[in-house]
């Protein structure tokens, strides 16, 4: 099926949910409200014409200061049987960064959603194991947000004297005779 036809089909089935349909380089992105995302995904997966059996990718995008709702969760779907693709985008506001998990539809969404939580702080409701995946568990902040700095603060070199002084202090942990 042509991607625009798929978008039309989604619009017919869920007229109130579709906000925008955009085409760029023969790829179609459908922007949706986030509330019924699980239902829409279930429909795309189960419908015999659409048959989106393969969740290619799931990721977040941070439109900090660019869009009214700061985050977008992007789903790339592909149908191995029908050989067609579509991109879904669900806008998520910063005030309540929550969206339904689609792990019930595609098991493979599990780690993608964990990564999205890790990097953007978007919480996926109904996810079986909502932990950080790439960053350490006690990490503060969400690195891929646009207000997260690329570099850490630069520390000035203390000078050789200070380093020797410090080494002397650590001597007390040395092996005792």
């Amino acid at each position: 099926m042509e991607p625009l036809q798929i978008a039309e089909k989604i619009r017919e089935k869920f007229p109130d949910e579709v906000l925008d349909v955009k085409e760029f380089r023969e790829q179609v992105a459908v922007t949706l409200k986030k509330d019924r995302i699980l239902e829409i995904c279930r429909y795309l997966h189960d419908d015999s014409d659409l048959c989106f059996d393969y969740l290619v990718d799931l990721c977040g995008v941070d439109y900090f200061g660019k869009k009214e709702k700061r985050f977008e969760v992007v789903y790339h779907l592909y149908s191995i049987q029908r050989c067609h693709a579509i991109r879904l985008k669900a806008a998520v506001a910063e005030s309540s960064p929550e969206i339904d998990s689609v792990t019930a539809v595609w098991a493979g969404a599990n780690w993608h959603e964990r990564e999205c939580y890790d990097m953007f702080g978007i919480i996926f409701k109904g996810h079986p194991d909502m932990r950080r995946v790439l960053m350490p568990e006690d990490w503060e902040g969400h690195p891929l947000r646009k207000d997260y700095p690329v570099k850490g603060p630069e520390k000035e070199w203390l000078g050789f004297g200070a380093v020797l002084e410090r080494a002397k202090r650590f001597k007390e942990f040395d092996w005792q005779e």
Binding site: D53, Y54, L55, V56, I80, W106, A107, G108, A109
Partner: peptide, 8 residues
């Protein structure tokens, strides 16, 4: 089925 569902 599992292989497709898990996105392998």
């Amino acid at each position: 089925e599992d292989a497709v569902n898990w996105g392998l």
